[in-house]
């Protein structure tokens, strides 16, 4: 009885979560432009999607920004964790409190604050300002993923390497980095997905004439939804599904902490 109830509950919630997405997927293969009636199978909307230079540029922007910002954030964040380790606990706490601000703050506030900052400095908004913003909100996630790995055990392993004659550099490269690796990896992944997913902060920092997937969806929805967006949804869903599957399998093998 209890089991049956839980199963029903799970099914209802799953339908709630996935039915809307599947509706989009079905409509993406619809011949007509209708948002309700399925008139016949076609790939027209996929053709339109791939022929749209606007959307294709947005896709390129989204992924180059995500890769660059996640890489920079991972480097700065990892270095930060290493440097923080050398500081007194009190200093560390103050810095980590500041680190938490972008995560706890509402995205709209982060977006507005960066927009104002660029306006004050008269920095023309575009690709570079989006990149700067994305690095800013990604660093805290990297720090939070890597920091738990910088613990007593890592300290001891470093000491063990030094004890066995390794130089500081060698011990860091051969022992500390491998120990931090799972945290670095999940930090990078987290930063990457946050960047791909972000709309609000990008929206306020992008300026005119540049788009990412998120901002182009927003502007198109305002004008009127075209089914090519359903095609885009379908592709994104499949890519996310495959990517998450790979990460999940890998994380089981290599104990990468799978964060949200």
């Amino acid at each position: 009885m209890k089991k049956a109830l839980s199963s029903i509950y799970i099914i209802i919630i799953m339908l709630f979560l996935y039915l809307p997405i599947f509706a989009l997927m079905v409509l993406s293969f619809n011949e007509a432009k209708s948002m309700a009636v399925f008139t016949g199978f076609s790939l027209n909307w996929y053709v339109e999607l791939f022929n749209s230079r606007l959307i294709m540029y947005a896709v390129v922007n989204t992924f180059t920004i995500a890769i660059i910002s996640a890489t920079v954030a991972t480097i700065i964040g990892t270095a930060a964790v290493v440097g923080l380790d050398a500081m007194r606990p009190k200093t560390q706490n103050v810095i980590l409190a500041a680190n938490n601000i972008p995560m706890l703050n509402a995205d709209i506030v982060t977006g507005i604050s960066l927009m104002l900052f660029f306006l004050i400095l008269r920095v023309p908004q575009g690709y570079m300002t989006i990149l700067f913003a994305h690095i800013t909100f990604s660093i805290p996630y990297v720090v939070l993923s890597v920091r738990p790995r910088m613990n007593r055990k890592t300290d001891r392993l470093f000491e063990a390497a030094m004890d066995l004659g390794a130089s500081r550099k060698y011990a860091f490269r051969k022992v500390v980095l491998p120990e931090l690796r799972p945290g670095i990896l999940s930090g990078f992944l987290l930063a990457f997905t946050m960047s791909v997913d972000d709309f609000i902060i990008t929206y306020f920092t992008k300026g005119a004439g540049i788009n990412t997937i998120s901002t182009i969806i927003y502007s198109q929805v305002k004008i009127g939804i075209r089914p090519s967006l359903f095609a885009l949804s379908t592709i994104i869903f499949v890519v996310a599904f495959v990517a998450l599957l790979i990460v999940n399998i890998k994380s089981k093998k290599q104990e990468v902490e799978l964060v949200l």
Binding site: E159, M162, L164
Partner: peptide
């Protein structure tokens, strides 16, 4: 003198074996 220049070696508490 740093530990890597001392003629002694340590067996650590909880061993500190390199897990990778």
């Amino acid at each position: 003198l740093p530990p890597n220049q001392r003629h002694l070696n340590t067996v650590f508490q909880n061993y500190a074996l390199f897990p990778h």
